[in-house]
Amino acid sequence: MSQNKLSLQNALLTLEQLQQTPSREDDITEEQEDNLRQLGCHLIQTAGILLKLPQVAMATAQILFQRFFYMASLRKFAVRDISMGSIFLAAKVEECPCRVTDLINVIDHLCKKFKRKATEPLVPFSHDYYHLKDAVVIAEMQILKKLAFNVHVQLPYAIMVNYLKVLELTDHPTIPQRAWGFLNDGLRTSIYICYQPPTIACGVIWLAAREAGVPLPTSPAWWEVLDSDLEDIENIAGHIKSLYFKALPIPDLPLTIEQVEPYIKRDSNNGSHATPPSKGTRVSRFS
């Protein structure tokens, strides 16, 4: 992720960063890392809904979370803490700040619920309360440090709406809603740190139109008119679709550092996920 100059575009990862992450160097398997990334994004999205944050804040938080763990190892930083820090920072970036007290109460409730524990309310000003409060502040500073204070995030939602207008699909009964949902689901993958928003917008429209059985213009090719590459579009669609073929085993996944070591020592060599999407790497070609 280049930090040499300020850009209005999203910071994207290099192929080397995608293939050899800090977590992989710390002996966390690709499958384990993928599960933990999805867990963090799921925690952020669920917490954001309970906190009544706008979707743009939840999306920004998930992208910051994903970027952070391409700069740091899941063996050294807890999913729970970085999720909290990402929400707290993203809420500021998107100008919808949330109270620390509300944030840690929601996160504490969700963590207990995920682990199937009794969900007693967090006692105000208790040891656990201050521990989580400190964790939020530390996590926010770690995210800023690792990302070199580059927390700019451009989202594809508005771009997608404009592209639907260009393609005359805004009034279709299913395509706009499906495409919007694919944008949200795609936050749990690596597409937002591999492709710029216009390409992602094309990817979700292509996937939604394909599922609806609606042909898109090919003369001229609509993706060329929108300055995108068909291979990139298919790759994005493939990664989004791959989410729906495996249930996330949330109760078994570690939320804190103390829970990480037993998890990474398990024998999880029962298959592997596809590699992160990079240019020239096709995940799934739909015929």
Score class of each variant (00 low, 15 high):
A139C: 05
I138Q: 11
P156C: 02
A135Q: 12
A179R: 06
P176R: 04
F149E: 03
N150I: 01
H152F: 00
A158W: 04
F149Y: 09
D134S: 12
P176N: 07
L164H: 09
A148Y: 03
L147V: 06
V123A: 08
T174R: 14
K112N: 08
A135C: 05
K115N: 09
R178Y: 03
A118K: 14
V153R: 08
R178D: 13
L144S: 13
K117L: 14
M141T: 01
D171N: 14
R178A: 11
A158L: 12
L164K: 09
I138W: 02
H131V: 14
I143T: 10
L167M: 08
L155I: 05
L147H: 04
H152G: 00
I143E: 02
M141Q: 06
V123Y: 07
E140A: 04
M160A: 12
V151R: 13
P124D: 11
F125G: 01
T174P: 02
A148G: 05
L147D: 07
V137Y: 01
N162C: 12
V137H: 03
F125A: 13
I143H: 05
R178L: 09
K133N: 11
D134F: 03
F182E: 01
T174F: 14
H131T: 15
K113L: 00
D128F: 00
D171Q: 15
P176I: 03
I159C: 15
A179M: 05
D134G: 10
T174H: 13
K115L: 04
I175K: 02
P176L: 04
P121S: 02
P121M: 04
H131Q: 15
Q142D: 15
E140C: 09
G181S: 13
D171M: 09
H131W: 11
K133T: 11
L132Q: 01
V161R: 09
N162V: 01
V123F: 02
P173C: 05
H127S: 11
V166G: 00
Y157D: 15
N150K: 09
H172G: 06
Y163H: 15
K115D: 08
M141C: 07
L169V: 14
V136K: 04
Q177M: 02
C111Q: 03
E168D: 15
T170C: 12
A158G: 10
R116G: 04
K115P: 05
T174M: 14
A148V: 05
W180L: 06
A148L: 00
P124R: 08
L147Q: 09
E140T: 13
V123I: 12
Y130V: 08
I138C: 07
F125I: 06
N162K: 15
T119M: 07
L122E: 03
P124Q: 10
R178M: 13
V166Y: 04
A139Q: 02
C111N: 08
K146R: 14
L169Y: 10
Y129I: 10
L169R: 11
Q142T: 11
K117A: 08
H127T: 13
P173G: 09
F182I: 00
Y129P: 05
N162G: 11
T174Y: 12
L144D: 13
A135M: 06
I143F: 03
E140H: 01
Y157C: 12
G181D: 10
A179Y: 02
L144C: 15
M141G: 00
A148H: 07
V123S: 04
A118H: 12
M160Y: 06
K146T: 07
M141A: 09
Q142I: 07
Q177W: 01
Q142F: 06
L169F: 08
F114H: 12
K145H: 13
T170M: 12
D134K: 06
K112P: 02
A148E: 04
